[in-house]
Amino acid sequence: MLDSLAGLGRGGLAALASLGRAHLLLWGIIGGLPSMLLRPRLLIAQIYNLGVLSLLIIVVSGLFVGMVLGLQGHYVLSQFGAAESLGVMVAASLVRELGPVVSALLFAGRAGSALTAEIGLMKATEQLSGLEMMAVDPVKRVLTPRFFAGLLSMPLLAALFSAVGVIGGWFVGAGLLGVDDGAFWGQMQSKIDFHEDVLNGVIKSLIFGLVVTWIALFEGYDTSPTSTGVSRATTRTVVHAALAVLGLDFILTALMFGG
């Protein structure tokens, strides 16, 4: 019994210490912003690595999610004679929820895990220590551009996910199931509010981008520099980032749309 309590205490202290290190790292990363702005090429290279290289999975997933929404939405709405509202349903689902959330989950799986593995391997192969010894701060030189690249890429990827999803929904709804084209786009245009729907979705995806990239960088930077350590850190990134995104989504949705 006492051993269990002691173990619980040790676990709690370790978690708090880890949280503290993560916040210190975030502070250090943000502190590197001025020097990064002087060298925008570092940021652009990382936007390519994190954003552009994630395009394929985002576009393909967005298309299929939109097509499924079109099918399911049409099935439900047609029972109430409201199939013409399919465009609103598809767009609202994507812009408010599925776009930010699913693209963040995909981003965590594709770019987040790659980030953790890259930073972890740089640590294991002493590249980060090498930078330190060359009087170059690895947090500012390596982590800061990756963090801001993730932060900027995420809303763009989410927007693209939603846009492609809407096209998928339209293709199934209007193209295959016979929903009126004009009603599909017209209702979407009149019912989707820029501030209420689109902007809130963008805010969500910004926050998800921050959290996913922060977790990925911290796990890589804090990992034990062994093959097992890097492997576990990569797994933790995906698990922790996915849970954080889903948990935060509930909180943000409650704050934004909860009345």
Binding site: T125, E126, Q127, S129, G130, M133, M134, A135, D137
Partner: peptide
Amino acid sequence: LYALRTRMGMLFQSGALLT
């Protein structure tokens, strides 16, 4: 410390080249 390190070199066991 960083200023001092510009006057120190270190050869790591692995080489530590940026890959």
